[in-house]
Structures are given as C-alpha cells and as structure tokens.
Design a protein around this nucleic acid. Structure first.
Lengths: 235, 235
DNA sequence: TAGTGGTCTAGACCACTGA
DNA sequence: CAGTGGTCTAGACCACTAT
C-alpha cells in the first residue's frame, strides 16, 4: 500500500474521504463492506464502523443493511449553528453586555405563538420583552412568551436584572426544541427599540422549547440589521 | 433499581438525560466515571462511553481526561440545518421545479466575494446568475462566482439546463465550507427577478467552498420573502 | 504519578432487508 | 434465507492532565 498507516478510525475516515474526492469511489457507487475494508486496512471492523457511521451521519455516505454502503448522490450537508444565550454571544464578540427589560405582562398570545407551541388558543401566558445591548447599543430584541402552566415559578420572577433567556436556561430544563430563521422588515416595535428605520431588514431567530409534553417558552430574537448567523460546517 | 433495563447506549443516554433533567445531576456537577456507570447499569464501559461521548458532542456534558465528566453549565445547543440543492428543497415541498439561467459572464468579483473566498483581488472568475422556480413562481435566486483556476472545466459548461448548484455538487467535490445567514432589503436585481417591492426583506444564505487549498465557489441564495430556514434540533 | 477518558481489537449476536 | 450494518462485551493500551 502506498498510503500511510491506517490504524485509527480517523485515518480510515481520511482514506475514505480521499477515495471519494479522487473519484476512486464515485457518487452513487457501492463501496466494500466493513469486513473487507477492515481486512484491507488491517484494523478491526469496529474501527471501520465508527469511521463510516460518522460519514453517514454527516450525509456523505448512505448505508442500508444488506444492500451495503454507497457514496451519496446528492449529499445533504449539515451546517451546525451554535445556539447560546445572547449575553455570551455579545461577550464572545468582545463587547460589554447590557440588558434592559421593556415590559412584562400576562396576556393571551397571538395565534402564531400558540401554533408554534403546538397549543390551542386561549391560555394566558407571561409575555416578556427586553433588549440586549452590546457596548450600550441595542444588539438584539427578545420577545418571549412563557407558559405559566409548565413554568409557574416564572410568575414570581420579575426579569428586571436577569434576562428570561438566561433565567430559563438555568432554571427550566427542556427536552425538545424547534428553531426557525426568517427575515422581515422592521416592525414598529423593532424600529423603536433597535433604533432603525422602516426600511431595515431584520433577521429573526424563533425558538420553541418543551419539557416532556409541556410547552416551556416561545421566543423571537430580532437582531440589529447586518447581523449574520455563521455556521461551523462539517465536511 | 426502579429504572427499566439499561443495556443499550441509547438507554444509557436516556437515563443520563433523565438525571440531568430531574436535577439529580445538577449543572456544573461532576458525574461518576465511565467504569462506575458501567457497573451501575450493568453494561460495558464502551456502551457508556458511546452514550456520554454523544452527549458531550451535543454540548450537554463536558469531559476532560483525569478530571472527569461534568454537566455543562451553559449548554450551547447545536441546531443542525440541512443544506441541499435547491431543486430538492423545492421538490420536498411538493412543488414542481423550474430553472432559468439569467446570465453567465467572466468578470472580476467584488471585494466581498474575494474576501469570503479568502483570496486577493484581481482574479477573473465565472459569474453565473439564475432563478429557481417552484410551480413556475420564483422561489430563490442564485448568484454564484466560480473559481476558474480550481474549476477550469466550468468554462466549457453553459449552465443553461442544469444549475451550477447541481453541476458543481456532481462534478467538483469540496473539503471545506463556510455558511452564513443574513437579511437585507431587496436589491434592484432581487426586486426584478423575485418580483417583489423595494420594501421586501430577503433572507440570504451565503456559502463558500474549497477543495483542499483551492477555492471552488462562492454563492448567495436569496429566498422569496417569508422563507424560513427550519432546523432539526438535537437533544 | 495516578486517574480519567479515548480508542482499538476480536468475537459475538441481533435487526433489517433484498433476493 | 443470507448478507449487511448495528451494537455489545471484555480486555487492553494509550493520551492527557491534575496533583
């Protein structure tokens, strides 16, 4: 073999990727089974399995029992976005963080919110709006609905010092979440609190979370115009 | 033990998550080491390792050799976005796909493009613009620069029938990619080809790819207003 | 230096699925 | 039914790092 030693799952992965990139294994083509590859690379089948499993998870290979492993024809690559609290997002940019509560009311959420939370309408929830500042300038708005049935303790917290963003993460664990990204023109509320014109285009991240079967919260983060969400991509 | 049988890595993971959610293991706290957990669950250490490794990859646990495994204090959850060719995106919505080339020129890319591709300015590239249609209606615009040094064969392809999006994926593999999501008001070009007003807010996905050290392409996909990018979230 | 996670191995059995 | 991937196990050694 002209290739360097192949004895770790990482090196197996590298060699497989090399063969795919060099068209030794073409898109759609079947590759040898795990046992044969293990023999060829002189390593255990477990090692080959780990290498191939990760490539299948990242969409480069397609595996099926009995019929074997193929190079994906139309690889669906997976971009990963790190979702974290806004304070950390700001601090990681090297800016100083500020927070201001705008209002906190108990109200009936609009249909868009109950729909995203997979609920019927009519239930009252806690509605919290706030602005996150970077070096004193508005960085993002937070518009959040909290389900008081699942999170009754939110009724006693005023969110004046600590954002709901952070308070929930520290106090209310969740099991399941959805995330949606969209763009809209700046609403009147956004124009006022982000200090932008009605021509501004705003990037929104909407996130709903559940704990077991109970809805926890639905939040929209609206970013200052020009904001980018950057992904750390995999292969 | 009152818990159901724990004998697969999946059930180990479920049990660990249950303990974290129920605050049996609190944020920041250390959990038992792999050997002890294997004993408790009456399974192999390898099984525990796989369960914990995945949780560490998804940001719920933090692991360090010698010092052990802790529940993450500020979990950075990872939202995964599937990036695939626009044709499949449209077909998965149950619409019929259409494609039209707008123009194809050789030109010097603007600074924003060379910057994203990590290049010096001055090099000529192939510039291809096209519209993707869903049921005959503009769905997204593709504005693409292709590096002719890395992909010389693009000079001979006209992109009249098949989009660059698809042609590149089938013919030019890449190793590395970046992805960026942003919102802007509709440009004159977007207003014309997406048939929207100057008040429209457009969601863009920018993607640059490289093969080994060579830049392959930089593309901006501009979606029809109202488009959402939806994530399949983990844990 | 010692404790922890990271990985490899050989062998085994199971689950799925195409022929 | 038979071939393939999916997983588990016990044991081993290695790599990193707190002390």
């Amino acid at each position: 073999m002209s290739t360097p030693d192949i004895n770790s799952w990482q090196s197996v992965q590298d060699e497989v990727l090399r063969r795919i990139h060099n068209r030794i294994w073409k898109p759609g083509a079947q590759i040898p089974n795990e046992t044969d590859l293990a023999k060829e690379f002189n390593c255990g089948r477990t090692t080959v399995n780990r290498a191939l499993r990760e490539l299948a998870e990242s969409g480069i290979l397609e595996r099926k029992r009995k019929s074997g492993t193929r190079v994906a024809l139309h690889p669906v690559s997976r971009a990963v976005i790190a979702v974290q609290i806004v304070r950390r997002e700001i601090e990681e940019r090297g800016a100083s963080y500020g927070y201001a509560l705008i209002d906190r009311t108990v109200d009936t959420p609009p249909h868009a919110v109950t729909f995203a939370m997979e609920l019927a309408q009519g239930e009252e929830m806690l509605h919290v709006r706030a602005v996150h500042l970077a070096d004193g300038v508005p960085y993002a708005l937070e518009d959040r609905w909290i389900c008081l049935r699942t999170v009754p303790q939110a009724r006693d917290y005023d969110f004046a010092q600590k954002s709901a963003n952070e308070w929930l993460l520290e106090n209310v664990p969740y099991n399941r979440a959805t995330l949606s990204i969209l763009a809209t023109p700046a609403s009147a509320f956004e124009q006022e609190y982000l200090a932008v014109s009605d021509k501004a285009s705003i990037l929104h991240v909407e996130r709903a979370t559940w704990r077991d079967k109970g809805p926890v919260t639905f939040v929209t983060i609206s970013y200052q115009p020009g904001h980018r969400i950057i992904s750390t991509t995999t292969s």
